[in-house]
Design a protein around this nucleic acid. Structure first.
Lengths: 248, 248
DNA sequence: GACATTTAAACGTCTGACAAATGAAAATTG
DNA sequence: CAATTTTCATTTGTCAGACGTTTAAATGTC
């Protein structure tokens, strides 16, 4: 294992890349122990500090974990779905907030993906998942629920729907799309009237899933998409008016 | 900005989290310059080496970029779709390879997501995207194409389809699903006969998109999913036979 | 005013050191 | 002999200080 000292990028980035490639290619397998920092610094002919910076980069991606003490060291980490969720959500959230993605585009993507889950969920949803959805609908009917709690409950409902597809890969992919929408959703003020309409659609969805009705599920999701887009539109308008009230 | 020295986790991880939270919450905005490493080490009351490890963690997630020289430093990075693609693909690929996700489950997720793009793509696909798809189909008809090139062309075809939806958020989400499948697809040997069938389906899809026919697009994608699953199944079987031939 | 030089700020890397954790091996004890 | 305690070597975590390199602004020169 050697490193090109003439390359433009940092040594720590090069070393991280070398180890990352070894992991991705399968040369290093899960739970395998990497050489100690001292050994790595010898192999790569850099200082221990540089090796450590490389290892921290990999740790940030959950590719390795470290343990102190004798027989400790850096180990190839089994990337769990939970860890992957977390990274996906952080990345998706930042991507949306930093790139001026419109509410419409984000909304369209989210519901397109959710509709992809619908046929599977209509077949596979478990009683537990149905119960979760019903419980969240019930929570949403409670008077005085804050907008924040409302949004959290909305996310919980939709995650139950997505999990209903019984496909962990889909759940992982969708987690990002659903959660990343929350900052945008939080900009919306949900009136009692709009909450009513959404609750009705949620109920329709839960009923359709309970009845194993794929088509009704997709239809209700499309209605919910339209409703959400309308809400978003007026929220954006209100915001625009607020930021430039002179034009009124 | 202070850090809890009693916490169990590493100081560098805590500092990275503090800065990451500041970025995600919007307290630090895009292109804003962070304090210099020396200043940060004063603020957090840790050594510069520890601060640097924290910054490398953030750099690994593309949250910051660093510049050397006077008036250089660490800047909040605008997370681009390209960078997000890259991370998404790495994470998805590892997730699949490390968690024994079956070919069937991955395949189901991928085609469910692609079908989600179909209705949008049938409306919005550009002539350019259609041309890309036709070109890849033509490439696939060439005799003597290696399995590797075949798979690459397959990915290019499907990415054109996904991009046809004209929704960057969808493209970003799908990139992970489509690319992460490639290591699994590479385990398949594509016979001339199976290639023929896939090319026929690709042509059907391109035709349907050109005719703005949503239903036909979805149908062809479902057929392609079934075909791919069949191929995957026999590949898995062949592999199992090869690894345990004594039972034959 | 245009170009060359200087300079200060900041990151990149190295060295050496010590603290803290940790599990294995050795020593002790009942 | 078995169980427990102690010792100990290994490895990561953190620190302090130093030097090189890069970079752009400031300065000087023609």
């Amino acid at each position: 294992m050697k490193i090109d000292p003439n390359s433009k990028s940092d040594l720590s980035a090069q070393i991280a890349k070398a180890i990352r490639d070894a992991i991705v290619s399968g040369a290093l397998i899960v739970d395998e122990r990497l050489p100690s920092e001292a050994e790595l610094s010898e192999q790569f002919e850099v200082s221990r500090a540089t090796v450590r910076e490389a290892l921290k980069r990999l740790a940030a991606q959950s590719l390795i974990r470290t343990q102190r003490g004798a027989f400790g060291g850096a180990f190839v980490n089994r990337l769990s779905f939970e860890e992957a969720y977390g990274q996906q959500i952080t990345t998706s959230t930042l991507l949306l907030s930093m790139n001026a993605v419109s509410f419409d585009v984000a909304c369209e993507a989210r519901f397109a993906l959710e509709r992809a889950c619908a046929p599977l969920a209509a077949i596979r949803r478990t009683p537990d998942q149905l119960a979760t959805m019903r419980a969240e609908i019930f929570r949403q009917t409670q008077p005085g629920l804050s907008d924040e709690s409302w949004c959290a409950s909305d996310v919980a409902f939709h995650r139950a729907l997505v999990d209903g597809a019984g496909n962990p890969v889909l759940s992982y992919q969708l987690a990002g799309a659903v959660e990343a929408m929350q900052p945008l959703m939080n900009m919306i003020t949900f009136t009692a009237r709009s909450r009513e309409r959404i609750i009705a659609l949620h109920t329709t969805i839960a009923d359709a899933l309970q009845a194993n009705d794929q088509q009704a599920t997709e239809l209700a999701l499309s209605d919910l998409e339209a409703e959400t887009k309308t809400l978003g539109l007026s929220a954006m308008q209100a915001r625009a008016d607020h930021e430039a009230p002179k034009r009124a």
